[in-house]
């Protein structure tokens, strides 16, 4: 499908990254009547709080003695509810360009096109993408016979498939692809699985019936020709490495953060971080801001609370780009009837 002009969504601010800082930016921008659209590669909000430590306690949020990553995300979502942000989840911001009328257009890998006078990069450590296996020569097979996600189950029909990993993704796909593939061998480093108990039982039953193989081993090499995998080398503890013939491999080792396409947006990066002015958190591009873990300045500390502060100062500088005809008026949420209106608290 080709996008026409009508498909472009116009808004006040595009936020790249729906982690805690991107979410709080919605609040600070919303107080000053700026509407936000957020893009995140994960299929849920919360960023690192959702992906890395949803159950781990955080102790350094002011006035919140303790909350988990998931709880922090939940509370931020409640706090920004009055501003009804729009989320574009499971999408990666792929391209940013200047439009003829001086706005920024951001396009995602799913073809969503957003336009706004302000872009806020709150992308933390970058996009969460599947960890790639650091095996010699594996690049030659990636995308043709080594995969880190399943797009179409049919593409594994009648394949001799190796699935590597011991979590929910590995087990779910082993169970689901077993009837489709010619043969499935699940390889995991230990005979314990961090997955839903039901999936573990199903997998064990398939192995016991001989419908699937399970090997407790590390994969130490891949070989094949012309992008076509022919075997993987696996090493069982205390044994010599053996070659296991196969024509496809799926590897599930969790996610890692990679900077990704934002590096090519025209924003200046130094060592994968964006230098910013600490009065405004604006980047080298006018109307483009960077807040949270992705920015750098003298004295920077990668703390959630620093990102919150950065969001407030960013919003102040963003205001004239969005409302060039209005004057920014600093107010307190405790007393301002105007802010109460924005928060939906006016009686």
């Amino acid at each position: 499908m080709t996008n026409t002009q009508q498909d472009v969504i116009s808004t006040d601010v595009i936020i790249v990254g729906a982690g805690p800082i991107g979410l709080f930016a919605v609040f600070e921008l919303g107080l000053y009547d700026m509407k936000c659209h957020l893009i995140d590669i994960l299929d849920r909000v919360g960023g690192q709080c959702a992906e890395l430590y949803p159950e781990k306690p955080i102790y350094d949020i002011p006035a919140v003695p303790v909350c988990t990553g998931a709880e922090l995300t939940e509370r931020l979502m409640e706090q920004i509810k009055p501003f009804s942000p729009t989320f574009h989840l499971g999408q990666m911001a792929e391209k940013m360009e200047k439009t003829a009328d001086g706005k920024w257009r951001v396009t995602t890998d799913r073809g969503t096109m957003l336009e706004a006078p302000v872009v806020v990069l709150a992308a933390g450590g970058g996009s969460f993408v599947p960890k790639k296996m650091p095996l010699k020569g594996i690049e030659a097979f990636e995308g043709t016979s080594v995969f880190y996600a399943v797009r179409k189950m049919e593409s594994f029909r009648d394949k001799t498939l190796v699935i590597s990993g011991g979590g929910d993704s590995a087990l779910d796909w082993a169970i689901n692809l077993q009837p489709v593939a010619k043969h499935v061998t699940l390889i995991h480093r230990r005979d314990e699985f961090r997955a839903a108990p039901d999936s573990v039982s199903k997998m064990r039953a398939l192995v016991a019936s001989g419908a699937m193989d399970l090997k407790i081993a590390n994969i130490t090499g891949v070989s094949g020709q012309g992008g076509h995998l022919e075997s993987v080398t696996m090493k069982e503890e205390g044994k010599d490495p053996v070659e296991l013939p196969c024509d496809s491999m799926l590897a599930f080792y969790g996610l890692t953060m990679k900077l990704g396409p934002v590096a090519d947006f025209g924003i200046t990066f130094e060592n994968e971080l964006v230098p910013v002015d600490t009065a405004t958190f604006e980047t080298n591009l006018q109307g483009v801001f960077a807040i949270g873990d992705i920015n750098v300045y003298p004295g920077k500390m990668k703390l959630i609370l620093s990102g919150f502060h950065e969001a407030a100062l960013m919003a102040k500088k963003a205001f004239p780009y969005v409302h060039p005809d209005r004057r920014y008026r600093f107010q307190y949420t405790t007393s301002s009837s105007n802010l109460h209106k924005q928060l939906g608290k006016d009686e």
Partner: peptide, 13 residues
């Protein structure tokens, strides 16, 4: 930690 090592590569004793 042992569980988290499932997300690492070439894990040994």
């Amino acid at each position: 930690e042992i569980g988290m090592l499932d997300g690492a590569f070439e894990v040994t004793a």
